[in-house]
Design a protein around this nucleic acid. Structure first.
Lengths: 152, 152
DNA sequence: CTTGAAAAGAACTGCCT
DNA sequence: AGGCAGTTCTTTTCAAG
């Protein structure tokens, strides 16, 4: 665990709101000088609290209007099965996220496709061909909202 | 739909890999001059293909070691129920993502907590108190891997 | 599309309180 | 820890090919 003070938390909150803002803009918001704000941001990066900045793409604008969540249950659950499955699923370009979970299903996949017909192709030709795959459940994404989540 | 050429796609691929790199670094990678690379990135932002850059936080380092996915089924499904539910769920600080989905459940929530005991508190005091909430299913996140997904 | 130049701003360093 | 001053690098815009 890492000790963060109130200023660090405010920096994380501000950067969660807008990750592109500069150290001087951050400093203005928090009443700090540019170097002070910058040093804190660097420290948060060095501590591993800030892992990086990820690109936020508009998938619809790229022609991928369909997002589907798949719950996948493995039929065979040895060590080999898990490794084979994870390697094979990582090779499917339409798969955006692979979550290994504990519960009714073993994996949750976030899959994007151009349309429902394209999704059917991905499901039949790619997902169902994965090694060791058992039961599969699908949920189509209607809308999504993200929040910063708890900081401290 | 927006027309993107091969160079635009390569830019999106590069930025998906590392969203922090400069226009000059991008240009070096793709054999473009710095202004040319910068103009393309600005165009992709203006077209809305690049929505922004989001902060990638290390939740474990912040003391939130538990991530749980909740499938939520509403008991009552009128227009009011949906709006009431979405408003109330957005006010829970531990909720990171709210996905409105089509399928066995109506919503999928990504919830973070300090530990399992903390998660139980969130579940009992917050999630179960949500207006109109019916059946709830939980999946604990073991590990997660993200991929850039399809670009073109 | 390119290069080159120039101005503004952001990042980074050392020193000082 | 924070501030100040200065250097280096990137961003952003321009002119011209």
């Amino acid at each position: 665990m890492i000790e963060l003070d109130t200023t660090d938390r405010m920096i994380l909150r501000e950067l969660s709101r807008d990750a592109t803002q500069s150290a001087s803009a951050l400093g203005r918001q928090l009443g700090l000088s540019q170097p002070a704000a910058w040093r804190r941001v660097r420290r948060l990066r060095d501590l591993g609290v800030i892992k990086g900045r990820r690109l936020d793409l508009n998938r619809e604008a790229l022609g991928f209007g369909v997002t589907v969540f798949l719950g996948v249950k493995l039929a065979t659950k040895g060590r080999m099965s898990i490794e084979d499955f994870e390697r094979a699923v990582a090779a499917i370009p339409e798969v955006q996220t692979v979550e290994h979970i504990l519960g009714l299903f073993d994996y949750r996949l976030r899959v994007v496709a151009r349309d429902i017909a394209d999704f059917e192709r991905v499901l039949r030709r790619r997902i169902m061909m994965l090694p060791g795959v058992g039961e599969v459940e699908a949920n189509v994404l209607l809308s999504e909202e993200r929040f910063p989540g708890p900081i401290g």
